[in-house]
Design a protein around this nucleic acid. Structure first.
Lengths: 341, 341
DNA sequence: CTGAAAGCGCTTACAG
DNA sequence: CTGAAAGCGCTTACAG
């Protein structure tokens, strides 16, 4: 860039002081400056194509007007990528609404888990949205205790850090209730991931709760464990269907895993929905493209992003809401894998 | 955050001047400072948990060490979202490699096309990657002429702004050649979008070139125009297949559009690949989940991101490569929609 | 109503 | 080898 114009240049051209330039351009209230002067300043700024230096502004305000999304890339990479566009859109929309910029900071598997600390301590950002928080709790807690604004996307049990997540228990229960309504009694389940993952545990809990409410026993032989990807779903489903008394319906807590399960079902020569009814979870793009189209539980990615960003910004601006642990509802999307409704 | 420690605090604790603190912590070469002093400074910094203020640093260096991805959201929103995770990963990886942060700035349909100008002029970032550049050429050109570092993801014909894109012509030609090799002579095409979109025009060109090289005439009655989404593909394919002399193969320049086309094919009672062979473009996630799995042309999203970011950073650092218009190769991914290879 | 001065927290010539 | 001072480009009390 060529020499940028500074407020000094504008002041000189308008024949006023830099103070006046700042006052006019920032529209500071309760300060009376003659309309003529205002106009001269504005005219000068326009003529010079002047944009105030964000860096200098930040130094004096002590605020960056930036929030960062810290995106942990783990073994669930492909799985989580499906949520990224929606989440980012929600975050950036809320950010723009409140006048903030968004920094995107993935933490790759080869980086230390706490690499984001520098972002906060070095004043690169006013607050952090952490997605996929893991065992990095000690640095995280320290930061939180030091009063640095943080919001979690997901949950970290045992802390009171503000967080936004989907109501996994309820979403899973709703899916299973739907299957019960359809008359199914032997309902198998494949989790989205090992139970160390909170969401996985919760979706299993939802399954159990729904069965329990219907007076049905929890039968471990009907449950298998997925591991984010298609392959895990194929293996799990195949194992589940190898039993003598097959389930008549399957609740699979991840669409990606369901894709593999559907393959296993197909390879066994079974038809969906005639021989077996299937409900997924997440509503990834592929869910509506496959045949038959997958009935699934939609995760409100945009809403998660918007809510997490709004919550964070309100904390930054010392206006936190009452409720700082937010659970968003899912939506059951009925398509074709359980027959026509 | 509580009172942040400053370099003054570190200096005081270590019993040296702020100059020395800066020199030691930044590892400035060619300056001799006793090992004891160095250690005292480092020890003090650690003890205070000192992180230099990025804002202050930026003010003196005049550099933000940040690049921004400007993401135009148009009518092709869902279509382009499929590329976002890969692209962002490529960009952030390259950025990290060179020591930069990444700002993500979508431009929503309700915003002026040139909203990103403030990002550049206000020194929020050292450079811009523009994805999906449109008619905003005047502001863009002005910025470029002023010497502000810019890289395009995609192409803007008629300018010499550095850009990174996929070789659409070649990718399309390769797909069609594959169909020719399989023995097809009546090959229909559905574009990914209207021809105003450069990529759309180029993919059509690739189709024509391949036919021409094979000595086959270009037959307009075999070509239809998609419009990013499934619906457009369904309409286009249905129209194409309504003809007396049906094509035996379809090259569809977008997987998303192909999803709709496959539905139309299915609804007409035709079988893929037996009655009709199909090749897509993009390799979205759904491509490998549908049955039969879609043979398609893979777009190297990670590579596009990495290359665009690297190119931009080299420009920022006054070390531009010879070639500033970069075309990346696609890869034909053979799956099941044209029969087993 | 407007201006001179201090200060945000660093880095970097410049002296010593 | 180390320190005092200037300066990056703004905003904000404080005077007048």
């Amino acid at each position: 860039m060529p020499q940028r114009p500074t407020s000094r240049d504008v002041a000189r051209l308008a024949g006023v002081s830099r103070t006046t330039v700042s006052l006019v351009l920032n529209n500071v209230p309760d300060v009376h400056i003659s309309p003529e002067t205002r106009q001269r300043v504005q005219e000068a700024a326009r003529q010079l194509n002047y944009y105030p230096d964000a860096i200098a502004r930040r130094l004096v305000s002590g605020r960056t007007r930036t929030i960062a999304l810290v995106w942990h890339r783990g073994p669930d990479r492909t799985y989580r990528d499906a949520f990224l566009p929606g989440l980012l859109q929600g975050i950036t929309r809320a950010a723009r609404h409140y006048g903030y910029y968004v920094l995107f900071r993935p933490i790759e598997p080869d980086e230390p888990d706490d690499s984001y600390v520098e972002l906060a301590r070095g004043r690169h950002t006013d607050g952090l949205i952490l997605s996929g928080p893991r065992s990095d709790a000690s640095h995280l807690l320290q930061l939180y205790e030091d009063g640095f604004p943080i919001t979690l996307h997901g949950q970290l049990p045992g802390t009171d850090i503000p967080s936004v997540d989907v109501d996994n228990v309820r979403g899973a229960a709703e899916a299973v209730n739907y299957l019960l309504t359809l008359g199914h009694r032997r309902i198998g389940m494949i989790t989205n991931a090992p139970l160390e993952y909170t969401a996985s545990r919760q979706r299993l809990d939802g399954y159990r709760q729904a069965l329990e409410q219907a007076g049905l026993p929890y039968d471990e032989s009907l449950v298998r464990y997925g591991n984010f990807d298609e392959e895990s779903g194929q293996v799990a489903a195949d194992d589940l269907l190898a039993q003598d008394e097959r389930p008549t319906a399957l609740f699979i807590a991840s669409d990606m895993v369901a894709m593999g399960a559907l393959r296993a079902i197909r390879l066994r020569g079974l038809q969906v929905p005639d021989d077996l009814c299937v409900v997924g979870f997440d509503d990834i793009t592929a869910a509506r493209f496959i045949v038959p189209a997958l009935t699934t539980v939609r995760v409100p990615t945009f809403g998660l992003g918007w809510t997490a960003a709004e919550l964070l910004i309100r904390i930054i601006e010392h206006d936190p809401p009452q409720q700082t642990k937010i659970l968003l509802d899912t939506e059951l999307v009925i398509r074709e894998t359980c027959g026509a409704p």
